[in-house]
Design a protein around this nucleic acid. Structure first.
Length: 289
DNA sequence: AGCATTTGACCGCG
DNA sequence: CGCGGTCAAATGCT
C-alpha cells in the first residue's frame, strides 16, 4: 500500500485533506530554521558583544517558544479534529502510536545491581527483563549541523552515550527533560570529525560542528518562558561556548500554557502557508559557514 | 540530599 | 552476530 510511511507524501502535492499537516510541517520547518539561525548567529555575536548576544538569546528563545507553543496546540487541535477515522489526517496519529512504554519491564528485578559492577551471573538470570528496546523510528527525523547543539530552546537530559564504530566522537542521546509529561522527543548529538589542518589545535574545540538529529515532537507543556516573557526579567542563561554546551538550569517549568485561539490561528496560517515542496525531512543542512 | 550525568548491560533489528 | 538505541544503578555535582 502506498502508505505515508515510505515517503513524504504529505508534502508533495498539497491536495486533499490536511492543511493542518502542512501547517505542522511549516511550523517544524520554522523551528528548524530559527534554530539554525540561532546556532549560526550566537557564537559569532558572543565573540563580539556579549550583551547583545544575551539579548539575542532572549529573542531567539522567545521566537522558538512561540513557535513550539503554537505547534503543540495545533497538533492537539488536529488530533481532536481527525478523531478515529482520520480522514486524511493520519500521519500524526500514526506516529504518536509509538508506544514503547506500554510494556516496559514487568519483572521486579530487585537484584539488579547494574552500573559498573554487574556480574555475569546476573545477566544470565534475567533474560526478559530490563525493558524492551525498540529501534528508533527513523522517519520524521530532522537533522542539522550546528556549532552549538544545545541552542534549540529545549531542555534535554542525557540518557546515554555510545561509541559508534569508526568514529572519533561518541554519540550522545538526549531526551526531553519533561519526558514524564508524555514528551517523547529525543535527539542525538554527535560531534563531526574534522580533519584539522594541524595549524590550530584549539580551533577544533571552538569551531567543532555537531550533528544534531531530532526524533519526535515536543508534546510537553511549555518548557519555559514562552511568549509571556516580555515582562518577566527571566533567569540568566549560562553559556559556555568554550565547552560548546549551554548550561541552562531553569526551574520554572510550571508555567501554564497560554490560551490560543486555534481556529483563528488556522485561518492565519492558511492565508500564509509556506511552500514545503523543497523541504526534505532529512535535510542535513550543510551550512557552508 | 536530591538530581542530572555516567556507564556498562541488555535487547531489537538488520 | 554485530551494531545501535535504551535502561537503570552508580556516581558525581550542586
Amino acid at each position: 500500500m502506498d502508505r505515508n510511511k515510505g515517503k513524504k507524501s504529505l508534502v508533495s502535492g498539497g491536495g486533499g485533506g490536511g492543511h493542518g499537516s502542512e501547517m505542522m510541517e511549516a511550523m517544524r520547518r520554522q523551528q528548524e530554521l530559527v534554530m539554525q539561525l540561532r546556532a549560526l548567529v550566537l557564537p559569532l555575536l558572543y565573540a563580539v558583544d556579549a550583551t547583545s548576544a544575551d539579548v539575542a538569546v532572549q529573542l531567539f528563545d522567545d521566537v522558538i517558544g512561540c513557535n513550539i507553543s503554537v505547534a503543540s496546540k495545533l497538533e492537539g487541535f488536529l488530533m481532536m479534529t481527525t478523531t478515529t477515522t482520520g480522514a486524511g489526517g493520519g500521519p500524526v496519529l500514526e506516529d504518536l502510536l509509538d508506544d514503547k512504554s506500554l510494556v516496559r519491564k514487568t519483572n521486579s528485578t530487585t537484584t539488579a545491581a547494574g552500573g559498573g559492577g554487574r556480574t555475569t551471573e546476573e545477566q544470565a538470570k534475567k533474560p526478559n527483563s530490563v525493558g524492551q528496546k525498540r529501534r528508533r523510528n527513523d522517519k520524521r527525523s530532522r537533522s542539522l549541523v550546528t556549532h552549538v547543539p544545545h541552542y534549540d530552546g529545549h531542555q534535554w537530559r542525557k540518557y546515554g552515550q555510545k561509541n559508534i564504530n569508526g568514529r572519533q566522537h561518541p554519540r550522545n542521546y538526549y531526551r526531553c527533560a519533561y519526558r514524564e509529561r508524555n514528551c517523547l522527543a529525543t535527539k542525538t548529538i554527535e560531534q563531526q570529525e574534522q580533519n584539522t589542518g594541524t595549524s590550530s589545535a584549539m580551533a577544533g574545540e571552538e569551531s567543532a560542528k555537531y550533528t544534531v538529529v531530532y526524533y519526535g515532537d515536543h508534546t510537553c507543556k511549555d518548557y519555559s518562558n514562552s511568549m509571556s516573557m516580555a515582562q518577566t526579567p527571566r533567569q540568566h542563561v549560562n553559556m559556555n561556548l568554550r565547552n560548546g554546551e549551554m548550561v541552562q538550569t531553569t526551574t520554572n517549568a510550571q508555567e501554564p500554557e497560554a490560551d490560543l485561539d486555534l481556529p483563528a490561528l488556522l485561518e492565519v496560517f492558511e492565508r500564509s502557508l509556506i511552500n514545503l515542496d523543497d523541504w526534505n525531512e532529512d535535510m542535513i543542512s550543510s551550512s557552508p559557514v
